[in-house]
Design a protein around this nucleic acid. Structure first.
Lengths: 172, 172
DNA sequence: GAAATTAGTTATATAGTATAACTGTAGAGA
DNA sequence: TCTCTACAGTTATACTATATAACTAATTTC
């Protein structure tokens, strides 16, 4: 600790109550901070955890330039070929207006194809291209490695299952 | 189901494998969708759950116009008066450049006060104003109601603790 | 005393998300 | 059939969150 830091500490009469265990706190030397209820606040801890997982996801897919939303879209189309744009969008909680750009991107990369329905010419049915199918397979391999890292951090598949079981209750 | 919908269903030869249980799916009648690994993907489920919790948080604090970040900042300053801006920012994982506007907002509402340190005139030490202290108390009451709803959804305090224990492993 | 570091700020870019309005198409009812 | 309504997709737009670089002023290091 530098002299100025010490002086400020004294100056401020900072009182630290129950330091509340190891909280994600950079990696240098830092002020000991009382997080109060934040330590156990569901929203806050959930948010921090989600960011950490998405961070790993982003690094995993940096080469492919694939965002979480893209991943989900490709996966859903692979397993539900022919769904309408709006159905995929709604299933993923994406507004259909914002979904247009996502499909545009995947179509530009020739992973996904829009096909106008013969029976309802308003509808764009979504399909993977052959390249998209191949991409999906590779994508799932990369994803598996990412997911395995997360499972390991959690302490194994049972811990993962328990986590999923719990968070699902928040969306039901 | 309308006639056109039925025709499209047939047209597409959609095959739905293992419907994978109740997934958040709007409230009307919808296509049955195979979510594949998304159902158990840590990142995806975590993200959806976090959004749901923040949704409730936002509704709880709509009147106060308080965002999650504001809440965290006020709480941290309340329990650690005199911390430097950069310390609060780092503790919350907010970049100090973006943190300026947050403190500006709280200062404009006269909840938080910047005080230039006597010992290091670069430093802005943060304190709650008397109004801020009062606001923090009310804020915590509102927050408690929100948090209790989340705990109830999870199935009780033990479930909440288990969830926190699990998600903390992802940020360590 | 000069150089490097730090705290805060400003400006700016990008990504994600939300809303309204529009086009083209389909369905429902007189 | 004609008209009204609803729907799918799109465009434009705005707002929020987040990320980066560059700057000023103050401090520390050598």
């Amino acid at each position: 600790m530098r002299y100025g830091d010490f002086l400020q500490l004294v100056e401020n009469y900072v009182i630290f109550a129950k330091p509340s265990g190891p909280i994600p706190s950079g990696n240098g030397r830092h002020a000991i901070i009382n997080y109060s209820v934040l330590s156990e606040a569901v929203g806050y801890r959930l948010r921090r955890a989600q960011l950490a997982v998405f961070q790993d996801f982003g690094e995993s897919f940096a080469a492919e330039g694939l965002r979480p939303a893209d991943f989900s879209v490709v996966l859903l189309i692979k397993h539900n070929p022919g769904l309408k744009q709006s159905e995929v969008a709604e299933a993923l909680g994406i507004q259909r207006a914002n979904f247009v750009a996502i499909v545009d991107g995947l179509e530009r990369r020739e992973l996904v194809e829009r096909r106008k329905s013969e029976t309802d010419r308003r509808v764009q049915a979504l399909y993977l291209t052959p390249l998209g199918e191949q991409f999906a397979d590779n994508m799932l391999t990369t994803w598996k490695a990412h997911e395995d890292r997360m499972i390991e951090k959690l302490g194994g598949p049972e811990a993962r299952d328990e986590l999923i079981r719990l968070v699902n209750r928040l969306t039901e």
